[in-house]
């Protein structure tokens, strides 16, 4: 999570109001921000709102970023706060029907495989979406971003022990609710 010289230059250019530099920053981090928002909200449309708000917040507060701090941690904190603050407009899992329709309309030899994959993804996403917010965000940072307990603790503002216990509770719930996927996933117990 240490900035290299290029990142530093880009951030400094952003702080001087260089909009092209902001575009560079956006391109470098858009997938990360959108993925966290999507995995947390479970709704592509809501994820777009959260990602948009995150980058607008970033643009509006980049002046406050200190060069000696970790930019990625700072960005993670913005997107996490946006996720947690985001008004829940009623959960909509319908957008995932798009995925099902895509799978069905795929070439015949792949259709069944894709359908299964989409179904599994929906199951996982939907069950993760039912976790309490503080467990869900920890699960997303751990498995979408692959962050360590210490990194998650720093971003979320709690101790690594609390992260571990939230993950542990989430694992138990998810293990119970996702038990039907074990057979399908077969060798993924890596």
């Amino acid at each position: 999570m240490v900035l290299d010289a290029n990142d530093r230059e880009v951030i400094e250019a952003c702080q001087r109001g260089d909009y092209d530099a902001f575009r560079v920053l956006f391109e470098a981090h858009k997938d990360r921000v959108y993925s966290i928002a999507l995995r947390y909200s479970g709704d592509p449309s809501e994820a777009m709102d959260i990602a948009q708000e995150t980058f607008l917040k970033l643009l509006g507060s980049i002046q406050d970023f200190r060069a000696d701090a970790s930019f990625e941690s700072w960005l993670y904190r913005i997107v996490v706060n946006r996720c947690l603050d985001h008004k829940r407009r009623g959960r909509r899992w319908m957008p995932f029907l798009d995925g099902l329709l895509d799978a069905v309309s795929a070439p015949a030899e792949n259709a069944l495989h894709r359908l299964l994959r989409v179904e599994q993804e929906q199951s996982v996403q939907s069950i993760v979406g039912k976790l309490p917010a503080e467990q869900r965000i920890v699960v997303v940072l751990r498995y979408t971003e692959g962050l360590s307990y210490d990194q998650i603790a720093e971003i979320v503002g709690c101790s690594p022990g609390t992260v571990a216990s939230r993950l542990n509770r989430a694992h138990k719930v998810l293990e119970r609710r996702l038990s039907h996927l074990r057979g399908v996933l077969g060798g993924s117990n890596g």
């Binding site: 997938d31 993925s35 777009m48 599994q120 996982v124 993760v128 997303v140 692959g146 993924s188 890596g190």
Partner: peptide, 13 residues
């Protein structure tokens, strides 16, 4: 392993 696989990062639209 299941979570790592199913909650992987995606491309932003």
């Amino acid at each position: 392993a299941v979570l790592e696989q199913r909650l992987a990062r995606v491309s932003a639209p």
